[in-house]
Amino acid sequence: MQPRDPRVEVVLVDDHRMFRSGVRAEIGDLVDIVGEAPNVDAAIEVITRTRPAVVLLDVHLPGGNGNGGVDVLYGCRGLETASGQPVRFLALSVSDAAEDVIAVIRAGARGYVTKTISANDLTSAIRRVADGDAVFSPRLAGFVLDAFGAAAGEIAEVDEELDRLSAREREVMRLIARGYQYKEVAKELFISVKTVETHVSSVLRKLQLSSRHELTAWAMGRRLL
C-alpha cells in the first residue's frame, strides 16, 4: 500500500459560523484546516499568518472595500506557502451567478464550486487546486470560457501548438484543463469515455506533455481557460 499524501493545509473563509463548522466536520479528517475567518479583514490576517496551500473562499463577505472575496484575493496577492508555492484560492459559494464566477477568477482564484458539492468532491477539488489545477463545477466553467473566449480565440489563431490539434481535440483539451472528469467530458460532447481517453492521450502526445496538471498549466499560460 502506498503512503497517503500529506494533508493539504486549508483556511476556511465564510461569514456563517454554522457553515464553517459543517465543512470542518465533513472534511476536517481529510485536510488540515489551519484557520478560519468570517470577514475580509480577518481573512487577510489569517491567510497572511498561516500561508496555507488552499483557501476556501466565500464570494460574499463583509468588510474590506465591499467587494467580498475579491478584496481577499487582492489583499493576499503574491503570498507563498512555507515551501515556496503560491497560496491558491478555491471559491466555495452558494452563488452560481456568472458575474460572481468571473469576478473571482479575474482576481486570481484557481477555481469555483458551489456549496451543493459533496464532501468527497470538495476534498478532491482542494487537492487538485493545491497541485495547480483549475477546478470548476461543470456549468460554471462555461462562464469562464465565455468571459475569456475572445482573447483565447485571438491567441489560438497564431499559436502553432494549437494547430497540431484537431477541432475535437481542442474541445476535449479545454474541458480537461478546466477540471472536467472524463465522464463529464463524454457527457458534454456526446462521446464515449473511451473516445475521451483517446483524445486526451493524443493531445498530451502532440503537445509533449505528461499529465493533466501540465495540460492545465499549458492552457492557462495561453489564456485558454
Rank of each mutant, 00 (worst) to 15 (best):
R77L: 06
L162E: 09
W218S: 06
I126G: 12
V11A: 07
A53V: 01
V10I: 14
R77W: 04
R223E: 09
R222S: 05
G22H: 09
M173K: 06
V185H: 03
D133Q: 14
P52T: 06
M220E: 15
V40R: 02
E161G: 08
I33R: 01
V54S: 03
D96L: 13
H213K: 13
Y182A: 05
L73E: 01
R128Q: 15
T195L: 07
T123M: 04
S137F: 03
E214D: 14
V70T: 01
V87Q: 02
A141Q: 08
V185F: 05
K194Q: 09
G84D: 02
L175Q: 03
A217F: 13
A37V: 10
G68N: 02
I44N: 02
V70R: 01
E188Y: 01
A167P: 00
A119T: 12
R139M: 12
R168A: 00
A130N: 10
V101K: 01
V129I: 05
I33K: 02
E160I: 08
V200R: 13
V193W: 05
W218H: 09
V10M: 15
S95F: 01
L122S: 03
L162V: 13
V200F: 12
C76F: 07
S93L: 14
R17Y: 00
A97Q: 12
H199M: 07
R106G: 01
F136H: 02
R110M: 09
E197R: 13
H16K: 01
R106N: 10
V200Y: 12
I176P: 10
L204I: 09
V8H: 05
E188G: 05
T81M: 00
N39I: 08
R212P: 07
G149A: 01
E80Q: 09
V40L: 06
D32N: 14
E188M: 04
R77I: 05
L224F: 14
R205P: 06
L162T: 10
V104R: 08
E157N: 06
V129Q: 07
A141P: 04
P86R: 02
E214P: 12
P3S: 13
W218N: 08
V172R: 05
